[in-house]
Amino acid sequence: MNTLQLCLLISSALFCIGLAGALSRTNTILVLLGIELMLNAANLNFIAFWRFNPAPLPATGVIFVIFAIAVAAAEAAVGLALVIAIYRHQQNIRLQDATRLKG
């Protein structure tokens, strides 16, 4: 196992913690945070591959992560605004209560 694989394992573990959290918590804010963690895990991968690329490209990974962070920030803002909208609507933020999209 080399260092790149170690990095990838770390990011997989982070991804799975985020996934497990998002799946098992009922508080919408925590679910959103779990999703943020999964995004972060992806960013870790970008940086790890950039760092250990045998044929290094100057700035690709870094640029990619910068864009990912920008999009993630937008996602967090919209997500938490959604949380507030849900709260206003049903007076709590339990995700399993938000089932109005049921077909």
Binding site: L23, V31, L95, Q96, A98, T99, R100, L101, K102, G103
Partner: peptide, 9 residues
């Protein structure tokens, strides 16, 4: 639409 339970989890 029956598949759409509305449950995000």
């Amino acid at each position: 639409s029956r598949a759409q339970t509305g449950e995000t989890h």
